[in-house]
Write a protein that binds this DNA or RNA. Structure first.
Lengths: 204, 204
DNA sequence: CTTGCATTTGACCAAGTGGTCAAAACAACG
DNA sequence: CGTTGTTTTGACCACTTGGTCAAATGCAAG
């Protein structure tokens, strides 16, 4: 019975979500105002509220859309593939996400920094389940001597940290590198670092 | 000619800074209210403003105090020491800072996420100078074959990312590890990862 | 062109915001 | 005790904030 959205609806909802992503990812939920989002989207505030019931609703829509894809790279980690190639591939997919969706990364970072009030449950259920499952897989690889003996949870954390850093701390990275593109160097470095970390120890 | 602070002044200023650190580090500058800080500090709002002229003033005092020590671990990186031990020592000092001062780490993260409006200049001057200097040192070690050939800037970024992650994403780390202390495992993992990353390649 | 619906807006509101101020309460000291 | 300086507070203010609403506008189909 719900009618298909008109072209105007599609355009405006998209504009609001993009504007909301801009502002929420920079200032966090509480630091963001509806006026800011409305200005960025090029709409009046009442008009904005014609498309989304509340500030919460915009934020929730953004988080929901984010979570749909945020964990995809990890889900794709395949137990049947070559262990080292699989893990390095995962890291590369995550780095690409930081490069291509930095606002989404910062939205997530803000949510976590503020104590994850809107996604706490998901962290403890979906996320934990997924991570534990993949950690078990990595542990098996490790036990089988196919990769170095490392703690799989901390390996996953390290991949998150190393890749998201380039999106979340973009301002700092740019300040230090003064202009030069970070991602090329990051990929080379990450490949080296992970390759070394995962390699099975040479016999002594 | 400025009078020494009384005991009450010391206590209240300290309480305000601690409360401000709590709130700013969680919600960022714009997401923080004076009422929140006053409540957390156990003072009335006018009383709070008797000690600090404005919300900005509290935030500025916190950032200033933070910056005094934030870069110390990197400054201590010593060109005369053993290269690998120096770098691993740096990483360990940074990890200890995440463990012992997580609120400060999150305050910094929030500031960067919001585009570093209050410390932009420092990033481009003091920080960049320091990092470039230490990067040059690491490059020299690399050129001399004392550590693996890696990009020193990205090495430094990786140490920042790996260590600060445990403070900034604490909620997520705890959700995944469900209770178990993260830092012991983190140190073991970090030592392995950096050791492998820096080791000179075995002759083939 | 008109009818009916989708869209947009100006005016408005109650609550929250950063901040002020004069007066009150307190502390210290002769 | 009284005096003097420090600390604390209640009342208040202008402005911002999230959100409402009725009226106005746009627009597509008959």
């Amino acid at each position: 019975m719900t009618k298909p959205p008109t072209r105007i609806q599609q355009r405006n909802r998209a504009a609001i979500l993009s504007a909301g992503l801009d502002v929420f990812s920079q200032y966090g939920f509480r630091g963001t105002t509806l006026d800011q989002i409305a200005d960025t989207a090029g709409l009046s505030k009442p008009n904005l509220l014609y498309y989304f019931a509340s500030k919460e609703a915009i934020h929730a829509a953004l988080l929901e859309r984010l979570l749909e894809t945020w964990l995809d790279p990890l889900k794709a980690l395949d137990g049947a593939g070559d262990p080292i190639a699989e893990i390095m591939g995962y890291a590369q997919r995550k780095l690409a996400m930081s490069r291509d969706y930095p606002r989404e990364s910062r939205l997530f970072a803000n949510e976590i920094l503020q104590g994850a009030p809107h996604i706490r449950d998901i962290l403890h259920t979906d996320l934990k389940t997924l991570v534990d499952e993949k950690a078990q897989l990595i542990q098996a690889w490790s036990d089988a001597g196919k990769i170095a003996a490392i703690d799989p949870h901390h390996l996953i954390f390290s991949i998150w940290a190393l890749t998201q850093h380039y999106a979340d701390f973009d301002v700092q990275v740019r300040a230090v590198l003064s202009g030069e593109d970070a991602y090329a160097g990051a990929e080379t470095f990450l490949t080296h670092m992970l390759g070394r970390t995962l390699a099975i120890a040479p016999a002594t």
